[in-house]
Each structure stands twice: as C-alpha cells, then as structure tokens.
C-alpha cells in the first residue's frame, strides 16, 4: 500500500505544488492549511510523514510538532520542515530535514524516499 504524506502549509500554491510532486512519485497525500487543522486530521488520515511549514496562523509549526509528538501513535512520525524563514535549523531539532524555500524538488523527494521508502 502506498505511503501517505501530509502537507501542512498556509500557502495554497505551495500545498498544490508539494501534493502534485508527491502524487507524481506515487505517494498518497493529504493537506492542511494550519497546525490546528493538521492536528485534527491526524487521526483520520494517519500520515506516514509530514512536511511542515513553520509560520502559519493558528498553531505555528513547532507547536504543532510538540502537540503531535505528545500523541503516542504519532510520537515517531517523521517530519520534514519546509520554510521560508532563515536560521531555522534549530526550530525543530528532531526533524528529519529542514529545507529552505524555494527548494529543490529532487532533494525533497530524495529525503522522503530515504525516510519512508
């Protein structure tokens, strides 16, 4: 069964971009526009990996991450941070990778493949 990636970003154009990119590589996807919505979707969508923007209305990235990892079944869910903020490598220390916008799609896909196959 295909692995599922949750894309969390408040910019719809960027969500569309990442969703298309992942679908073209054979992944299933779901998306949320802020941390709050993403938290509510976790139970039903049960993603294998999350790409996370930092700056969003309602629960910014790090707070979403903290709340997600407090839920036992998502404690180990890998997260890739994709953000336009500079100097963010420490924002979520346990992220699989922290990628700056604008990003190289091949790099993102490579990290996803290395993480969840």
């Amino acid at each position: 069964m295909a692995k599922k990636i949750m894309v969390v970003d408040d910019d719809r154009d960027i969500v569309d971009y990442l969703v298309t990119l992942f679908k073209d590589s054979g992944y299933e996807t779901c998306s949320a526009h802020d941390g709050d919505q993403a938290l509510k979707m976790l139970e039903t969508e049960r993603p294998d990996l999350v790409t996370l923007d930092l700056e969003m209305p309602k629960e910014w990235g790090p707070r979403f991450y903290r709340k997600m990892t407090q839920m036992p079944e998502f404690k180990e869910t890998p997260v890739i941070v994709i953000s336009g903020l500079s100097g963010i490598h420490l924002a979520i220390k346990k992220a699989v990778a922290t990628i700056n916008k604008p990003f190289d799609p091949a790099q993102v896909l490579g990290i996803v493949k290395d993480t969840i196959g």
Binding site: D13, I14, Y17, T20, G84, K101, P102, F103
Partner: peptide, 11 residues
C-alpha cells in the same frame, strides 16, 4: 519573496 518563488516553482 521566498514563499512566492516556491509557489512559482510549483506553477
């Protein structure tokens, strides 16, 4: 600008 450039890449 970074956000816009990323969205442009997406387009």
């Amino acid at each position: 600008i970074k956000g816009m450039l990323t969205a442009l890449d997406g387009g």
